[in-house]
Amino acid sequence: MYTFEDTIKRKRKSDIPLPTSAMNYDGIWLEDAIEGYRTLNVTGREMISPEIQSENVNVGSIISSQRLPSRTLKITYQIKNDDPEMFLVNFRRLMEYLYREQAVPVYFNDEQDVLYYGRFSGSDEVPGDRYTVTASFDIYCADPRKYSLKFYRPKKVIRGRFSFKTRPSKIVVKIEKDASLTVTNGMQNVKVVNGKLSPDDEVVINFVDGTVMVNGINRTNWLDLSSDFENFELKNNQVLSCDNGVMTLYYREVSL
């Protein structure tokens, strides 16, 4: 009932074997990018505990809310270089690769079917009196969920495992007529109405970065304010449809 496509390029420039837990950060294996760098260990990928708010009553308690906290991945690594100048250059390069102002895709050599979204958030103090250093840094995942590395593209009826809230990654529509656009899952709607859509326009509704692109131009302001954009959710056996054009849905399976 669906097809999938792998959107992550995995080819490497180097033939040197990667450590078991090597991290691919925004499309880059740090072992390939930084001389003398090697991943030693990763923690934070295991089970995550929900935060439950409750109020005690005569017998037990009443649960008022439940939420999933953020996730922090701790990467323990080693850098070594006998050249003092290059040793410091390696750390500058490490910061250049790690520093981001938004979450980026992250996956690991021993878990290549799972994608995280996170950004560098801090590191251990690094001793300055040696040329082989073992330390760690943190990747902060505001969204603690794990996503399949592959995009799924349902043909018509959505068939999948939705144990956790799953949103589309993006919806692409090839417009057929001069009119607005409404995408629906039968219960929730996303409407693009402010602005003129014409035949052969391509509309990309991106739920990851919260944008609406028309022919590659940001038209997020064309999104109807009454749309269910923020809480548009996929469920098993849904049928998605649109009223103007040919639609393709992309989503990733979600796990914890």
Rank of each mutant, 00 (worst) to 15 (best):
R100W: 08
D110Y: 06
G186H: 06
A179P: 13
K170Q: 15
V114G: 01
V239I: 08
E101C: 09
R167V: 07
D83H: 14
V208A: 09
I79M: 01
A135F: 03
I175G: 06
V57A: 12
L40K: 12
Y140A: 05
V212Q: 07
V183T: 10
T132D: 09
E46Q: 11
S123V: 04
K80H: 14
P84M: 15
S227A: 04
D32L: 03
V254Y: 07
L94A: 01
T166W: 08
Y99M: 12
V193E: 15
M86R: 02
I171S: 12
I175Y: 03
P154N: 12
F164H: 14
I62G: 06
N58P: 01
T20P: 00
S241T: 14
Q66N: 00
P19G: 03
E5W: 05
F4Q: 07
P17F: 10
P17Y: 02
Y131G: 08
R167M: 14
L181W: 04
I75V: 12
N231I: 09
G186C: 09
R10K: 13
E176P: 03
N189W: 07
S21Y: 05
F4C: 12
L225V: 13
N218M: 12
Y117G: 06
D32M: 10
S49L: 04
V173A: 03
T43A: 12
I34M: 09
S65G: 15
N236Y: 02
W29D: 13
Y25E: 13
S148K: 07
W29T: 02
L98E: 09
C141G: 08
I8G: 09
I48C: 11
G195E: 01
I8S: 13
R119K: 14
M47N: 15
N206I: 05
R92E: 07
S65T: 11
Y152S: 05
R93N: 05
L98D: 06
Y77W: 13
Y251H: 01
Y131F: 10
Q66C: 02
T20K: 11
I52S: 09
R219H: 15
E253N: 07
L18E: 00
V192Q: 01
E125K: 00
I62K: 01
P127K: 04
F4N: 11
N90E: 06
K80L: 10
I75P: 09
S70M: 08
M1S: 09
F162D: 13
T184K: 06
L181H: 04
S64V: 10
L181T: 05
P154V: 10
I217V: 08
V157P: 00
R145Y: 05
M213F: 08
I62H: 07
E101N: 11
T220K: 07
D138C: 03
A142R: 00
K11L: 12
F207H: 07
F4T: 13
K80R: 10
S121A: 14
L73H: 02
E125T: 14
N189M: 03
F120V: 05
N109C: 12
S241Y: 02
Y97F: 13
F91R: 12
R159T: 13
I175M: 09
G245P: 02
Y152M: 00
I158N: 08
E46Y: 10
R159S: 15
D83N: 15
K156Q: 15
T39G: 10
K74Q: 14
L256I: 13
K155D: 15
Y37A: 00
R119D: 09
P127T: 06
S227R: 02
E5S: 13
D138W: 02
Q112W: 04
M187H: 10
P17E: 01
S64A: 11
V173D: 08
R100I: 08
